[in-house]
């Protein structure tokens, strides 16, 4: 019910987006919307253009055409800079600082309250590692430290590029619960993954292949449309259907 209510407002609206990188069109006329209060998954194989698409949404990608509107403003607008949380695929935190020092720096850049540091450390489950240098953390812990930065200042849109790579099933479960908590509090989440078994955890799915969207639907509707109970099979059916 909460989701239904929140879904009224559109956090991200993309239309006719095209991106050219290295002479190749890597995003080819993509259009979709991300509603507030939901977790939208961007699924697709490695190299299909997910990261480029997310970079366009947060406004750091040079685009060749189309429009990207975020919270009512063109993507990349100065007014959006403290309203979006973004975590890149490779952990974007300083390896020679502790988790807490990293968070303190980004919190002060975002003008987020100092108490936010402890809150996000707790949310990503790094309480025990908060005063450890990032370069002494495991790969998964580093990823979570980077994720924590994206949660500072209660952003209205949270864009996460492969946040659950390299995590054990228990942690993955915890993070997906966290993503849904954040959505229930009204945030829009756009989360990419190349692992199809994460698709079922999303409220909405964007299936991407070769720079194009194959589907933009709920997991349930996708299963029904393709007649396959398994989302991986559904994805394959869609690929074959367009081939």
């Amino acid at each position: 019910m909460t989701i239904q209510r929140m879904a009224n407002s559109v956090a991200v609206s993309v239309d006719g987006l095209r991106v050219v990188r290295g002479g190749r069109e890597v995003v080819r006329g993509v259009a979709f919307e991300v509603p507030s209060g939901t977790v939208t998954g961007l699924l697709g194989p490695s190299g299909c253009g997910k990261t480029t698409l997310l970079r366009a949404v947060v406004g750091v990608q040079v685009v060749a055409g189309g429009t990207v509107t975020v919270l009512g403003h063109p993507a990349g607008s100065a007014v959006l800079r403290d309203r979006i949380g973004y975590s890149t695929q490779s952990p974007s935190v300083y390896a020679d600082l502790t988790v807490r020092e990293n968070l303190r720096y980004f919190a002060s850049v975002l003008k987020a309250p100092a108490s936010d540091v402890d809150r996000v450390v707790d949310e990503v489950g790094l309480k025990g590692q908060a005063d450890q240098l990032v370069n002494t953390l495991s790969g998964g812990e580093r990823g979570r430290a980077s994720l924590a930065v994206a949660l500072l200042g209660r952003p209205e849109l949270i864009v996460l590029d492969e946040p659950t790579v390299g995590l054990d099933p228990v942690l993955r479960e915890e993070l997906w619960n966290l993503f849904h908590d954040l959505a229930d509090r009204g945030a829009a989440l756009l989360v990419s993954s190349h692992v199809m078994d994460e698709a079922a955890r999303c409220d909405r799915l964007l299936l991407m292949r070769d720079g194009e969207l194959l589907a933009d639907d709920t997991p349930q509707a996708l299963r029904e449309r393709t007649g396959s109970p398994d989302l991986e099979q559904a994805f394959l059916a869609l690929v074959r259907g367009t081939a």
């Binding site: 750091v60 973004y86 490779s90 974007s92 935190v93 300083y94 850049v109 975002l110 930065v149």
Partner: peptide, 13 residues
């Protein structure tokens, strides 16, 4: 190179 710059460029700095 470590993407911290990319992250900062999305922030109000």
């Amino acid at each position: 190179l470590t993407a911290t710059l990319e992250r900062l460029m999305t922030m109000p700095i």
